[in-house]
Design a protein around this nucleic acid. Structure first.
Lengths: 161, 161
DNA sequence: TACTGCGATAGTCAGAGAACGTCAGGCCGG
DNA sequence: CCGGCCTGACGTTCTCTGACTATCGCAGTA
């Protein structure tokens, strides 16, 4: 069963695709999907997170709105400032963001997602989240650093930047 | 003595076909066989193990599912029977071999090498080598599995809209 | 102007419901 | 009696709703 949350997520992503900022009315979207208005908050809370590269702002009252936009890439800080510990969901959000921004290939995303999974890092809990963060940082760093080395190598041979 | 577990295994294998990712609902399959839902977990645990080249993931809650996939023998190959524990040098050797064989891109190699490094998996020693092996297996599997899902999609079974 | 009340939004939170996971223990054939 | 099969009770996670709360703009009024 494709759940409502996933449907609404797809809908918003499609709307968002056409511009950098999307402005919606909560009640209008809820109506379109025949659900409670607070469902929209749930979708935004669980799917359009900062870790995934989204920014949400809103205003209440007459003429109120909810705005969803993508964070500019340079506001992310790459892998450098990921937190010391990461739960699985947040780690996957970070990966999704990097794939969407084409910093990682989808296959690299799948690789990393597998690697940070709960079952693979089979460790007791405060530790597991710390190792996951370290692994994710290293993985992202490893891939991006390779890119740089590769680019430099090519440049030495005389290609254009 | 056609036991239930064997029946369910056969059923899932038939659904799974070649190189397809299968998506099921635990309760639906349990119903079909008139058994307890946890029986499905037992089948997955004892028959669809990573050692046999299977991969199982799931999501709980409304709209939950269980996904089963298998890597084709030739893609999984030598990576499939990596030992239970791996020191860093051996792990890197395996990675190099897979890159050489074009199972992984050089960049994926760099990613994995970073991830299995001693400093990243900062754990006491008998444990570290075990986690490293698990991480490596998962990473390779994750990458190869993506390929397959991308090509063949997901086969959903049961429950129509 | 300043205040006040009202309608129109959106936010929060607890809780119900829908999946799946785990585990101790019963059962049964060899 | 041992090991594999199977279940049921209980735990965890995710979704969705409804009641209640907070905020905003505007119109009317002193």
């Amino acid at each position: 069963m494709a759940c409502l949350t996933d449907d609404i997520e797809r809908y918003l992503l499609r709307m968002l695709g056409e511009g950098v900022t999307l402005e919606i009315q909560r009640a209008e979207v809820a109506d379109r999907f025949g659900c409670a208005p607070s469902q929209i908050n749930y979708v935004l809370l669980t799917r359009f997170t900062p870790a995934r590269g989204f920014f949400v702002e809103s205003r209440r009252g007459g003429g109120g709105y909810i705005r969803v936009s993508r964070l500019p890439e340079d506001a992310w800080g790459e892998a450098g400032d990921l937190p010391e510990a990461l739960d699985q969901a947040t780690a996957e959000h970070h990966i999704a963001r990097l794939v969407e921004a084409r910093r990682l290939t989808p296959r690299e995303g799948a690789l990393l997602r597998a690697v940070v999974s709960r079952d693979v890092l089979n460790l007791p809990l405060p530790l597991r989240d710390r190792v996951r963060a370290a692994v994710l940082r290293a993985g992202i760093g490893g891939a991006l650093r390779w890119q740089q080395e590769y680019a430099n190598g090519v440049q030495r041979v005389g290609m254009e930047p």
